[in-house]
Amino acid sequence: MGNNINTDVWVFVEQRSGKPAEVSFELLSKGLKLAENLKGKLKSVVIGSDVKDIAKETFKYGAEEALVVDDPELHNYLTMPYSRILNELVEKHKPRIVLFGATVIGRDLAPRVASHTKSGLTADCTDLQISDVTYLKKEYKDLLLQIRPAFGGNIIATIITPDNEIQMATVREGVMKMEPLSKPVKGKITEVPYTPNGIDHIIRIIDQYRTENKVNLKAAPIIVAGGYGMGTLDNFKLINELAATIGGEVAGSRAAVDAGFVPPERQVGQTGVTVRPKLYIACGISGAIQHRAGMQESNKIIAINTDPEAPIFGVAHYGIVGDAMQIIPMFINAFKEKLR
């Protein structure tokens, strides 16, 4: 590859009705590290209506430039105009890396852009790194390692795009850390005019319903999670009690959600939320790979399970073999005693 190759890292900054999505800032923080490794620039791409403030916010995460397409017509995400705009921008500037959140919008948009620009795209990454790679006896410098679970979470695959100028990835929400800089970058806003096209509004939004997600598991310092092993909805109330006592949020495994013990927005794991709290207490959770993927980076993990062979103990810092129905009340009492 020539020396004149572009080393810019782009992050598509997603907004929903004018509100930026958290995942975009998580990606900017990761993108900054990747750009430093590549000795390139981090740039944000913001599309919407009245989005200059969002563009400026990206400077707090290290973006040196924000490419902004600002037009009332673009208020809501629509596949056709957004993909057309991004197709043109990516085609023109050929950034080295383009990152999207693995959200409904990101997973709708990124494949169209990759298809149009014939770029490689890896879905749902959980880690990204820059590294030199030897692939089929050829040496490649500074490739993007796109790391993702595969085969239902049973394996971790590292994907590369060795012979392409542009490397694209969507990244799961919550897996990258959001790290605002102590001093924002003095970034520049580059306005890109929007030129409407007949095909842009071939799809029209008739109505939109969005409920503000009141549960924010990602931000909770303490999480008490219950699994199918709690047995019944009545038993699961102990999880709520423990969480209330120690000031934590209630969560559940997929099995607990499927059993109706806990609502879906509180599901931790690969198809739920990825969390890294200060303390994670797993009660009656066997610890399938899919669950562990969503919590194993917690600072401290307590596992309570009757089965000493349960895989959850493999990621735990403290393991308690026993019935959660008996152990949780003892824990609650010990905590109350200590507070007295």
Partner: peptide, 13 residues
């Protein structure tokens, strides 16, 4: 354009 560079079984932290 995308190639599988490496495949590992899931490592427990």
């Amino acid at each position: 354009p995308t190639k599988v560079h490496k495949v590992e079984s899931v490592v427990l932290a």
